[in-house]
Structure formats: structure tokens, C-alpha cells
Nucleic acid binder design. Structure first.
Lengths: 197, 197
DNA sequence: GTCTATAATCGGATAGAC
DNA sequence: GTCTATCCGATTATAGAC
């Protein structure tokens, strides 16, 4: 079990981010020490500085990577058809992407306040891109008469809050399967964009 | 400006909680030191321990008080009429109570993970009481046919996430007044409980 | 009730050996 | 690339004077 010295750049880098993400999601950035992260990875604290210039940058990397991977995954998802079909596809994508990534979701939202102003703007910009994607779908639906909205931008924020909130309570061994939750939210989302009778 | 020694129990206690709330909301519990809180109040760090046995208890007090005051305020609010009228009253109450208390909302949600297991159960129980109030309204609406819901409990969580999310983006000097936001959300909430055409 | 002083520990980050 | 050792400052909480 003795740990050898040597080169493990390719594997240690991801392990550092994984450990940091898990610990920060659990306890908060300020509550987690570099020593704890190092222990989780299986190295000494000093070794972490081969992978990040400091703790702030490590946190920023976690958040920036999460948002960039989210946007990349969204771009690879086919969102086609009528606005109603697109909105349903967006809803399913959002749930399926976020539910297995609760630590990323929690950290990316919760630790925004601990970013430097420049880093905050970067993450904020990426988040805005994602909101714009949903806004585009709503706009198309308003244009062709599929959707009637009280306010498009507020509806975007409301829908995302509603959907992301699932990560706070869903349990694999809970009352509902993920598929059932998806169906319920597709229903709720479509109601939101339909004018009341 | 010299600060005198003396008795200020009645006034210092609330000042400690106010300072702690503001700082913890801004930076997170672990990132805020007792010295910073004391400095904000205008006393030395040691004096804080006349008002709390330790940092954990101070945090817990903030969260418990917030939830208890929320429930007390809700109990004093007249929620009457048809289920639709009750749901509208709940929506307005929720927005109007939470929007001026963003620090409380943020801390009570964000710092749950930093509570001891016993303290967590207390806060969780209070939060549950509030959710039950909304569930009661939805149940009444289902019973008399006003509402049609895919799943009552999921709808409760979805509505609260949707409404509480307002605290993350609303700005007094923004595009919309609070009154306009209230109208928009009353509309969105009522759509959620109405079966699609 | 508040102050000053202090105990005991832990924090981020760096230097140099291997 | 990792380790050990270390600098130096900050942390919570307590003790005793006033």
C-alpha cells in the first residue's frame, strides 16, 4: 500500500477536482482545507499546487467546467420540432443532465459569492447563455401562438428554478422514479406556458 | 468615540444576530470569523460568548428564528375563501415575506449542511410545517375540483422553489416593480394548478 | 457585560530534497 | 510530480480583571 513518488499528472488532476467538488458541496468552500482535499486524493497538501495556483482558482475551475460541460451537452442535444416539443426536450435535458450532478449544481450556485469579481462574471456569463437557450424556445412559442406568457424573462427564471429545485429533494429510493418525475415536470412546464382557460 | 464597558444585553443580542446574518449570507458561515462579527457589532470577540455558547448555536438560532417567524407571520395572515383565492393569498404572502428577507432565506437554505444532525432536524421540521400549509390549500382545491394536479407533493415543492427563486434575481431598481412580479407569479402559480386545455 | 490576554489548533501557501 | 518541513497569520474558545 506504500505510495510511491512519481508522475501522475493525467490522473491526479481529475482526482483533485473530484475530491474538491465532493467536499465543497458537502461542507462549503471555506470549511474545506487544502489538506482535507489532499487527503481525499491520497497526496500531501503541497502536491495540490501542481494542479491549481490557489484555492480560489480551484473553485473557479469547478464552476467554469460545470457550466461549459452543461452548454456543450446542450449543444449536442437535438432540440427540434414545434416549440412545444422543444420545450419538452429542454425539460427532459435539464432534469437528466442535472439530477446526476447534484454536487456540481450545488457548488455552482452556492459558491458564486466566493468568486472574485472577474471569475464571477465569467460563470455568470455562461449561466446566462443557458438561460438564453430556454428564452429562445419561449420566444418561438410566443411567435407562433403556442405559448402565452405573462413575462418571458421571468418565465425563464421561474422555470429554471422550478426544474433545478428537483436536485434538492429527489431520491433514487424515494416514492417516485426519475421517469415519473420527468413526466410530472413536463406537465407542469407545459401548464406554465399555456394561458389559463 | 471611546466605547465604554457596561450592560447592553437587550440591544447587543439582536445586533449580534443581525451582524452574523448579514456576514454569513454574504460570505458563508465558515468564511466568517467571530472577530468579524464582533467588529461589525462594535465589541470584542470574547463578548459574543455572552450571547451564544458557540458559533454553531449562533447559526442554528438564526435559522430557527427565521422559520419560526415565518410560520408566525403566516398564521397571522388571513388565508380564506375558495382554494383559488387561498392559493393567490399564499403566493402574495410568500413573495412579500421573503423578498425583504433575502439574507435569512439564503442562510436558511445554504447553511443547512453546516447544522448538527439534531439542529438540522429542528429546522427541517419547521420548513416541513410551511410546506404542509401549502399542501393543505392544494388538497382543498383538488377536493372541490378547482385544481387538477399531476402530483400534489411534487407540486408543493415545485411552487415553493419557483417562488423562493425570486429572491435570487429581483432588484428594486430592476425592470419590474414588486407589484408587477407579484401579478406575474400569481398568474404562473394558477396556471400550474389548472389542467391544460 | 465587556475587556484584554492567551491557549491550542489549524489555515494557505512556499522551498527544497528526491 | 510528490514529499517533508516550515513560515506566518488566523481561528475558536476560555480566564480573569474591571
Amino acid at each position: 500500500m506504500a505510495r510511491k513518488q512519481g508522475s501522475h499528472s493525467d490522473i491526479t488532476g481529475p482526482k483533485v477536482r473530484a475530491a474538491a467538488l465532493r467536499l465543497i458541496a458537502r461542507h462549503g468552500c471555506a470549511a474545506v482545507s487544502m489538506r482535507q482535499i489532499a487527503a481525499e486524493v491520497g497526496v500531501q497538501a503541497g502536491a495540490l499546487y501542481n494542479y491549481t495556483s490557489d484555492k480560489q482558482t480551484l473553485l473557479f475551475d469547478l464552476m467554469r467546467r460545470h457550466m461549459e460541460k452543461l452548454l456543450a451537452a446542450y449543444d449536442e442535444t437535438l432540440i427540434t420540432g414545434t416549440p412545444t416539443e422543444q420545450l419538452r426536450a429542454f425539460t427532459l435535458f435539464h432534469i437528466r443532465y442535472h439530477l446526476p450532478r447534484r454536487d456540481e449544481v450545488f457548488v455552482s450556485y452556492m459558491e458564486l459569492r466566493n468568486l472574485s469579481p472577474e471569475n464571477f462574471l465569467v460563470v455568470e456569463g455562461l449561466r446566462r447563455n443557458y438561460e438564453d437557450a430556454l428564452e429562445g424556445i419561449l420566444k418561438a412559442g410566443e411567435a407562433d401562438g403556442s405559448f402565452t406568457l405573462p413575462d418571458r424573462k421571468v418565465t425563464v427564471l421561474s422555470l429554471i428554478a422550478q426544474l433545478t429545485g428537483i436536485t434538492n429533494w429527489y431520491r433514487d429510493d424515494g416514492r417516485l422514479t426519475q421517469e415519473q418525475v420527468e413526466d410530472i415536470y413536463c406537465d407542469l412546464v407545459l401548464r406554465t406556458v399555456s394561458a389559463p382557460r
